[in-house]
Write a protein that binds this DNA or RNA. Structure first.
Lengths: 343, 343
DNA sequence: CCCAAACTTTGAATCGTTTCATTGTTACGA
DNA sequence: TCGTAACAATGAAACGATTCAAAGTTTGGG
């Protein structure tokens, strides 16, 4: 329960001034070898650890960056977080992580907390309408970078992924491997991501005169929802089946796969090709390894930190919106139908 | 880029003393209604936000708790973290989260960081041998609670889950539903959790004179590892199959399920019953919904915070080791074999 | 109208670090 | 030996909040 040693204790113990101890810690070159050794010995003997609160107070700001995500349990964000932490560590900052859980009031609490902590900047995947709060922060010199959301470049920097391009990639791949009767399976079209992926897919299909794209609405984005879409498809009649299915996420795709292969004895990829989105861990270990679209989550996290650093360095209020293109991951579930390879 | 308002600015703006502003914030009852209103108006007009570094410096400690986990991507820890955050919020503390990623040096960095932040206490799932560091922290009045690891009660409090009991539960359930030729599938026996779960299973099997338990080593704890164990089993001969399989985690179980049902056309639960461990999200949406053992992660997180609070309140160095018992979750994969229900 | 008790308000001191103008020391060429 | 440039060390001031003894004000009984 002893109060821990302060820089003053170290100074006394080493018979030097406090300023010298501070110099040993921050500008070792300004201090003579002899003195440095004496001070370091004292630090060790007393087990001195810097008090960050005092540093911060003096500096006027912390060396932390706030990061608020929608759901830490979601592998997409987990990966973004990890990349952001690593990138921040490289430039000597730590990341304070907040999980809003899609809840506007939790989000608001975290903004309050981070503001009290005087974070250098904020990365956020917003839930509610926080533009007022963010504007206010910006006025006080706390820049914000939006994550996984495209922002008005005149106001914020942002990093996001081009879902339209992802949708195009997926559909184009089905077409390239010889499929022509495509289906898109996606949750409520009101979700921007879903709508964009569909739009990209439509763009690809329009490039092939003989190709069609049917849209199947799913009830959510879960394995179970995918399974019921699969069942519905088969019950409708085998003659009427698509030969390539693109699901708006991997969980849906896994559900469709379960339904088609287990319950209905269809073969993937021979009878129907299947591709998902997100490339979750389970995609590779599905019964038939699932092709998917991988989002560059590491690049998102890293770039978000870099954009923030740019804003901190320059004093001109210049923002950038960086948009990443996702990547096609080919696995067995979309292997070419024999003899009809169009590549 | 304006320096943000300080309590002194607020005091000037409201024409009161700084102490009064502080009282408005911390002891509103001590201040008259009129003054309070004036101060609150000033706070609003200036957009004043408390500087936490200054509070902390004065208080001598922060209102944060450090939490270091082995892997935030692991749903087990994600859930523990969330529960800990909620419990901490209730008592007015925030949680600083660190992900060691099973890496001793990252772990050590986080301990350093948290020490500089003067966290009130530390919750940790240790990777390396950190007992020296933790002892040192304790001497300085920073208590530690070990998470998911049983600790010497004379030194630390801890929260953990009884894996032996979990293994017993799983095996007992297979026996109760009429199975007698059991198999245990588990990664390297050097992992404590695996060894304990096996031991519990053996205990259950010994209660039934006519039951046997065979141990199958798996190469890791993944879906793929499970699949190859499944293949191996079948190739060995159908006559020689177990009628109940207990896997040391759900991923293994899902792999075994894939192998048995897809590749070898065996029926679960009719031909073989299957139970996993951890109750991950995927267990419920497997082709055959998977029975499993659920660990009380919320209770772990909440209790860890409570134990820490106990240590902070009392000044006597009294520790407690709380051990939770996991819970059986019955799904279709272990439905009773017809006519042989032993219940 | 006075006095004491209860209630408000004040502002200097404090927490631990960094900064920086000042002072002290050393080395070396003239 | 002196002067000065380069290098080292010093310690008071500042950061912003909280605390608390002291001073100021109000209230109500006598």
């Amino acid at each position: 329960m002893n109060r821990s040693a302060s820089i003053k204790d170290v100074a006394n113990h080493a018979s030097v001034a406090v300023g010298t101890v501070s110099n040993v810690l921050n500008y070792p070159d300004r201090v003579s070898q002899r003195t440095k050794e004496r001070v370091l010995r004292a630090i060790n003997e007393l087990g001195f650890v810097r008090n960050d609160a005092a540093r911060q107070l003096r500096a006027g700001h912390s060396r932390t960056i706030g990061l608020i995500v929608l759901d830490v349990g979601n592998p997409f964000f987990t990966s973004v977080v990890r990349a952001a932490e690593d990138a921040a560590a490289l430039q000597g900052s730590a990341v304070l992580l907040g999980d809003s859980g899609h809840n506007a009031s939790r989000e608001s609490n975290y903004i309050d907390l981070f503001q009290e902590q005087r974070v250098q900047g904020l990365l956020i995947s917003p839930v509610g309408d926080v533009t007022d709060r963010l504007d206010q922060l910006r006025e006080r010199g706390v820049p914000t970078v939006l994550v996984d959301r495209l922002a008005d470049e005149s106001k914020y920097s942002s990093v996001s992924v081009d879902d339209d391009a992802g949708g195009y990639l997926a559909a184009r791949h089905l077409l390239d491997t010889g499929r022509r009767r495509l289906a898109f399976v996606g949750g409520p079209a009101s979700i921007r991501q879903v709508a964009d992926r569909l739009q990209g897919a439509q763009r690809a299909v329009q490039e092939e005169p003989d190709a069609t794209l049917e849209v199947l609405d799913s009830d959510g984005q879960t394995v179970l929802a995918g399974r019921s879409v699969g069942n519905m498809l088969v019950e409708r009649g085998l003659a009427d089946l698509p030969d390539g299915i693109f699901c708006a996420n991997d969980l849906l795709a896994l559900g469709v796969m379960q339904s088609l292969t287990m319950t209905h004895r269809l073969r993937i990829p021979e009878d129907i090709a299947l591709i998902g989105y997100d490339d979750i861990d389970f995609a590779v270990s599905a019964v038939v390894p699932l092709s998917s679209i991988r989002q560059p989550t590491e690049a998102l996290g890293r770039t978000a930190i870099e954009l923030l650093a740019e804003e901190l360095d320059s004093n001109t209020p210049k923002h950038r919106a960086v948009i990443f293109t996702p990547e096609l991951v080919v696995r067995q579930s979309t292997a070419p139908a024999k003899g009809s390879f169009a590549g």
